[in-house]
């Protein structure tokens, strides 16, 4: 994972509540065995007509939105299925961050591993950013180090899981970090009761 520090760019507003991961990336695109190739299918059913042509009125298809870095979304964003393909698709389209009043637990967690920055702000602050994002040229800056969001007339602090913060700032490999705890894992393992099930019968 590449380190994530500051993100500066234009925004796309998506003012809908409870956007589930089935909308972010529909099931028919989950058949790949690779981690890439999902960007074109972001919000596929909303972004395409029945015959598969891109709908020019869906916001991410508008030419002046290409190159946007930050998705400003409604509450409970990323609910539903645990598919990590959701953050993959969002990042591979070109977004580096999502600003929302609240993200669903698994989606927030997954994003902390894929390098998609999830910024949770009060609904009122997200509302102001949503208004600002109506202008395709409006720019926002998110600084993970200081946990701040800044845009025209807006300056907000956000909370962030400290462990995920270190991982993102340094672009760490999670498994490598865990393996430094190998001795305690092994001793916990040795203390497990013998009747616990195994899958080898």
């Amino acid at each position: 994972m590449k380190p994530v520090r500051t993100i500066t760019g234009t925004m796309v507003p998506l003012d809908r509540a409870d956007v589930d991961t089935d909308q972010i990336i529909p099931q028919q695109f989950l058949k790949r065995i690779e981690r890439d190739g999902y960007g074109d299918f972001l919000f596929y059913n909303w972004a395409h007509t029945d015959d598969g042509t891109p709908s020019s009125d869906f916001i991410i298809n508008r030419p002046d939105r290409r190159g946007a870095k930050v998705l400003v979304a409604g509450p409970n964003f990323g609910c539903g299925s645990s598919r990590e393909h959701a953050p993959w698709a969002i990042q591979q389209w070109g977004f580096d961050a999502v600003i929302t009043p609240s993200a669903a637990d698994i989606f927030r967690n997954n994003s902390s591993f894929t390098g998609l920055l999830i910024v949770e702000l009060a609904a009122e602050a997200v509302g102001r950013l949503m208004d600002l994002a109506a202008d395709p040229a409006a720019v926002v800056t998110i600084d993970l180090e200081t946990q701040t969001v800044a845009a025209d007339g807006i300056e907000e602090h956000f909370d962030f899981d400290p462990t995920a913060k270190v991982r993102l700032l340094q672009g760490l490999d999670g498994i490598g970090v865990t393996m430094t705890h190998d001795d305690v894992i092994a001793s916990h393992e040795a203390s497990r009761p013998s009747w616990l099930p195994t899958s080898v019968g």
């Binding site: 645990s82 990590e84 698994i106 967690n109 997954n110 591993f113 865990t178 393996m179 894992i185």
Partner: peptide
């Protein structure tokens, strides 16, 4: 439920 990065993490650790 967990995501794919975590699946890899659980497999390894």
């Amino acid at each position: 439920g967990i995501g794919t990065t975590e699946v890899e993490h659980v497999l390894a650790t």
